[in-house]
Write a protein that binds this DNA or RNA. Structure first.
Length: 308
DNA sequence: CAAACGTGGGT
DNA sequence: TACCCAAGTTT
């Protein structure tokens, strides 16, 4: 029987026509041949390695994560090791991965794991979700990749694969919808181990073949079933895909300020921070924001440092 | 729910 | 040169 019958009252027409069974084997077989050998996927990689990678990979490409992930695991092999450090050291070691609040949240998550979970990354999806910086995607990813559980894992790659293969659109909606969750649930293999493999395989397919810019359909194991291809690969029609501005924004100023703090072993005088941006109002607002977020700690006399 | 939140490489 | 995009989460 189809998995959809058990978990979805009425699968969408597209899912019924496609049927998960037609897709599982080709995608999983393709994964077996083409999966990248990533550190957090190796047999000896523990849940902590997976969790660190998931935090780092939130909006940051794999190639830039690789060296930093290796450093972190060597330096802090268990959650308690990171928890024993100051949050500022986590922010410093985060380097230029971007979105440094992730470093703070990962440190906070490690602290919670050490204090409330006996130092072990929790297996339970709800407990994972309760950790700082862990949202719907990351909770499912850790439960699935680290512990082999059966969860829908909806990242941008999987959403794009399903948008094309199932819905026949060039791109998924801007935000994850209930319809996407239904589709993913209907396609999720019944067997736990197969489901976990499927999650990793669909993600890898999106990352390597069914890419955003120029998909290589000639290498796609399910091209023959793809609704988007069958419809003639129509261009994206909906509202413009949301872009991110950066130049001149507070984000850019925050980035410069934090770069100075990261580069300094000790506290930094106001003057060194003032040098990174000409406009005093925006500069002050950005610094206040960093303090507000806990990324920067003000000391007396206009001196600042990463949080101790 | 839209907007904020870094950084860098590809086209 | 601009703009797009990258294993999202939080408010």
């Amino acid at each position: 029987m189809s998995q959809s019958a058990r978990h979805s009252a009425s699968p969408s027409p597209a899912v019924s026509r496609l049927g998960g069974d037609a897709l599982h084997d080709p995608v999983i077989d393709w994964f077996g041949e083409h999966a990248r050998d990533l550190p957090w996927r190796r047999p000896d990689a523990g849940a902590w390695s997976v969790m660190v990678s998931e935090f780092m990979l939130q909006q940051t490409p794999v190639v830039r994560v690789l060296p930093v992930h290796q450093e972190w695991l060597a330096r802090w092999p268990r959650p308690a090791d990171l928890a024993a450090e100051s949050p500022g050291e986590a922010v410093r070691a985060w380097g230029r991965l971007g979105y440094p609040r992730r470093a703070l949240r990962l440190h906070a998550a490690a602290t919670a794991i050490a204090a409330q979970h006996g130092g072990e990354v929790p297996r339970d999806h709800a407990q994972l979700l309760a950790l700082p910086g862990v949202g719907e995607y990351t909770a499912a990813a850790v439960a699935s990749f680290a512990y082999g559980q059966r969860h829908i894992v909806l990242d941008t790659n999987v959403r794009r694969v399903f948008a094309r293969a199932v819905s026949g659109t060039a791109y998924p909606p801007n935000a994850t919808t209930a319809a996407e969750r239904r589709t993913a649930q209907a396609l999720l293999p019944a067997d736990e181990a197969v489901a976990a493999r499927w999650a990793a395989a669909t993600m890898e397919l999106g990352a390597l073949v069914c890419t955003a810019r120029s998909p290589e359909c000639g290498r796609c194991p399910i091209a023959a079933h793809c609704a988007w291809r069958l419809a003639g690969s129509p261009a994206h029609d909906g509202p413009p895909r949301r872009g991110q501005s950066y130049a001149g924004t507070d984000r850019q100023v925050r980035g410069r300020l934090l770069a100075v703090l990261r580069a300094s072993a000790g506290p930094v005088p106001q003057a060194a921070l003032d040098a990174v941006w000409h406009e005093p109002v925006q500069r002050a607002r950005a610094l206040d924001g960093l303090v507000e977020d806990g990324l920067v700690e003000p000391l007396a006399d206009g001196v600042y440092r990463l949080p101790a």
